[in-house]
């Protein structure tokens, strides 16, 4: 279909698959493809882990404690609705054009999402099981691992799903605006040259990588945590 489309469109708008493949090959041979992919992936991983950890902590705290909830709720609403671009530009201006600012900007974009999801999850925790854990005097570690986390697992999975997609979209924007490597940076250059072939040559391997992570990491984890459900989730 792509091939068919490229026959009709001009080369500048939609290049043929083979042309894109040859650019991917050339970039791979020079090593630039892998260096950029690795740089982007490292940023995705760092900001994803940070956003999940901080967002989960905040969400659980807000779900458990009414005063924390009231205190943080307005901030959360602001962060949820603040355009990603505003956060990114402010981070670069205030912190500087460096890695810390880049990661912080992505984390701030994802964190409110995670917090809201996990707050709902915490509010929905089963009180009966909590009482059971108290009467049987389960140690805190056991309680968290066997009573609380399994109940939060669907919420964590939902936050991770939407989180991964959000984070990698924003990482690319962050790279475009203020980093000198990564997939986003390369796409920025391609944009300046109106080079669609090069743009696709960087976008496609990245999409493939994200699909692979989804299929081989996220889905097996989900299947494992929901194996107790009689009919699957």
């Amino acid at each position: 279909m792509w091939q068919l489309g490229s026959n009709f469109a001009s080369t500048g708008t939609l290049p043929a698959p083979l042309a894109v493949m040859s650019v991917i090959g050339a970039e791979a041979r020079s090593g630039a493809l892998f260096i950029n992919l690795a740089a982007t992936l490292a940023r995705v991983a760092a900001s994803f882990v940070l956003a999940m950890a901080l967002g989960t902590a905040l969400g659980v705290a807000m779900g458990r404690n009414k005063s924390i909830d009231r205190l943080c709720d307005p901030l959360l609403i602001v962060l949820l609705n603040l355009p990603a671009l505003v956060v990114i530009v402010l981070a670069y201006i205030w912190v500087g054009l460096n890695e810390t600012a880049a990661i912080a900007a992505v984390v701030l974009n994802k964190l409110p999402n995670t917090a809201v999801t996990l707050r709902e999850g915490t509010r929905a925790l089963d009180e009966g099981l909590d009482e059971m854990a108290r009467v049987f005097n389960l140690p805190l570690g056991t309680k968290v691992r066997h009573v609380v986390v399994p109940q939060l697992a669907p919420y964590l999975a939902a936050a991770m799903r939407s989180g991964l997609s959000l984070v990698w979209k924003i990482v690319l924007v962050v790279e475009l605006l203020g980093r000198s490597n990564g997939v986003g940076f390369e796409i920025g250059i391609a944009f300046q040259l109106f080079d669609v072939t090069r743009l696709l040559a960087y976008a496609l391997p990245f999409v493939g990588l994200m699909l692979a992570i989804e299929t081989f990491v996220v889905q097996p984890v989900e299947r494992h945590v929901s194996r107790w459900r009689p009919h699957g989730a």
Binding site: G128, E131, F136, N137, H146, P150, W228
Partner: peptide, 15 residues
């Protein structure tokens, strides 16, 4: 040590 049997079983469904 207290052992308690609630009106409902209150087992952990995921274990």
């Amino acid at each position: 040590r207290i052992g308690m049997v609630f009106q409902e079983p209150r087992l952990l469904p995921w274990r």
